[in-house]
């Protein structure tokens, strides 16, 4: 919304400017949106002059809007997860700059393993630096090394790739926002020489820090911090084109029922039922992502990981399902395998 007075060469006298101002036409947008007849009445200029002014302003205005869109499209870099089955499942909504994803599953389902693999694949494709925010000491450098070794990556390159994964360990929900603010403060341009050029953030895992704030006295604090985190993440995704992956837990509604009744409006239980994983899923119908109703809408894409019940418990095979997606139909699924060389 640029002020009209900033434009030279419109041929409007100070008197006419004042007159327009008095009618509430102060910005370029407001002038463009006013009908020609009204402007003729106001300024008593001929229609040709009005059209000329509008054209001058419009040329400057609309193309810029379009180029912004075009710019964004070209800057939306594709990253992909590097896991063949998962990438083909998500062919229409690939992992790209600005994605906000969530991986949820029960404990021991392989969420952390999937994150480790995505991290290794991301730095192997040399897209930039990855920040791994670890809230429960689950990040394992040994595991990353094992993945790289199994893929026969030469030693010097292993070191280089591992230098590209930054790890932050936190144990309080209050600590997460300062880190993200610091990331937001990094230079916006692709300034490779600066050293830090974070292009993806993995947060493993949110419940580990937010579940400490579940007692009566801390509940509002938890909600506040969650909202703050969410806003920061959206800002980072939009303005800095950073891809974000959260890890969340799938919890049993019946077990958490008491909590659900306390926190949310009483008739929300029906909503929960409607939103749970489809009834024919292997892990039962009563599972839903943790962190409550507010968080349910936060990520753009939510994947669930499940262990097979009919297989022996030792199997490395897992099913990944799309629980929610802003861009395509939810409900597809694919199988992946956890191997020493990562997830395939």
């Amino acid at each position: 919304m640029t002020d009209l007075r900033q434009f030279d060469g419109l041929g409007l006298s100070t008197y006419l400017m004042r007159k327009l101002q008095r009618k509430g036409i102060l910005t370029r947008y407001e002038l463009l949106m006013t009908s020609n007849e009204e402007l003729i009445n106001l300024t008593s200029l001929p229609e040709a002059t009005i059209l000329e002014i509008k054209q001058k302003l419009g040329e400057d205005y609309f193309p810029r809007q379009q180029s912004l869109v075009a710019n964004r499209l070209t800057h939306r870099k594709l990253y992909t997860t590097g896991i063949e089955n998962l990438d083909s499942l998500l062919a229409r909504t690939p992992l790209k700059a600005g994605s906000v994803w969530e991986i949820c599953g029960k404990s021991g389902a392989g969420k952390t393993q999937l994150c480790h693999t995505i991290a290794v694949n991301f730095v192997s494709q040399s897209h930039g630096t990855l920040l791994y925010i670890d809230t429960k000491c689950d990040f394992s450098g040994t595991r990353i090394m094992e993945i790289l070794r199994c893929r026969n990556v030469p030693n010097d390159e292993c070191g280089h790739l591992m230098q590209n994964i930054l790890v932050e360990r936190i144990d309080k929900a209050e600590d997460i926002c300062p880190i993200l603010e610091k990331v937001a403060a990094q230079p916006k341009a692709d300034n490779e020489s600066d050293g830090i050029n974070i292009k993806m953030i993995i947060i493993d895992a949110l419940p580990a820090i937010f579940f400490t704030l579940r007692t009566e006295t801390d509940r509002l604090k938890g909600k506040f911090l969650l909202t703050q985190l969410n806003n920061l993440i959206y800002m980072l995704a939009k303005e800095h084109q950073i891809a974000i992956i959260y890890v969340n837990l799938l919890v049993n509604i019946e077990e958490e029922q008491q909590l659900a009744e306390d926190v949310d409006i009483p008739d929300c239980t029906e909503l929960y039922k409607a939103r749970t994983v489809s009834p024919n899923s292997t892990c039962g119908a009563n599972m839903r992502p943790a962190l409550g109703e507010y968080w349910y809408r936060a990520p753009h894409l939510r994947l669930s990981m499940e262990q097979h019940v009919d297989f022996t418990s030792m199997s490395g095979e897992r099913t990944v399902k799309i629980l929610r997606s802003c861009y395509s139909a939810a409900g597809g699924n694919c199988n992946i395998h956890i191997t020493p060389a990562g997830v395939y």
């Binding site: 450098g141 040994t142 591992m162």
Partner: peptide, 15 residues
Amino acid sequence: MLKTTCFDIWRQEIE
């Protein structure tokens, strides 16, 4: 902040 890399973590884990 934003200084620890995966390599450092790996070294720590070995020791």
